[in-house]
Amino acid sequence: MEKTEAHWVASIVSIAQQQDQKAFAEVFRHFAPRVKAFLIKSGADESLAEECMQDVMATLWHKAHMYDPSRASVATWVFTIARNRKIDLLRRYARPEPEELPWGPEQEPDQADVIALHQESTRLADAIRKLPPKQRDLIERAYFGDLTHSEIAAETGLPLGTIKSRIRLALERLRHAMS
C-alpha cells in the first residue's frame, strides 16, 4: 500500500529521536531505489550510484534531527541530500550549502504549516504529471543535471508561487521562535 507523507515524516522523526532501525529500513526500501535511479539518470555508473546512494541514506540517518517538515517534503529533503552528494563526488569539492536554520527542542514546527506544505507539494507533483511530455522531460533533464545553467528556463509553468509563500510563512514563524 502507498504510504502517506505523514507516515514518512513520522519515520524521520522516529529515526531522529529513537534511532529507530525499523523505520529506517522502511524509508530505505522506499527511497533507496529512487535515489539510485536519480544518480544513474544523472550519469553515475552502477557501482558509483550504489555507493553514493548508500552515502545518501547514511546521511539521512545522521541528519534526521535537522529535517523540518514545514519547509520541505521528505522526498525533497532526500533529493537535496542526493544532489549535494552527487556534486561532491562528481566534481570533487564540497558543495557550498546555505547556512542551516536550527530547530531547538522547544521549536517544534507548526503542524498547520506542515499540513499546508504537504498539500502544496502534492498539488505541485500533480501539476508536473499533467505537463505536456516535452515540457515535463525538460524539467526532469534539468534536475538530472543534463542542462547547463543557461539552458534552464525558470519559467516552468508550474504553480510555485503558493508553495514559496507557504515556506516563507514557516520561515517567519521559525525566526520569531528563534528571537
Binding site: 525533497t76 533529493f79 508550474l158 510555485l160
Partner: peptide, 9 residues
C-alpha cells in the same frame, strides 16, 4: 527544490 523532490518520487 520541491520540483526536484517530485521528480525523484
Amino acid at each position: 527544490e520541491e520540483v526536484g523532490g517530485a521528480v525523484l518520487s
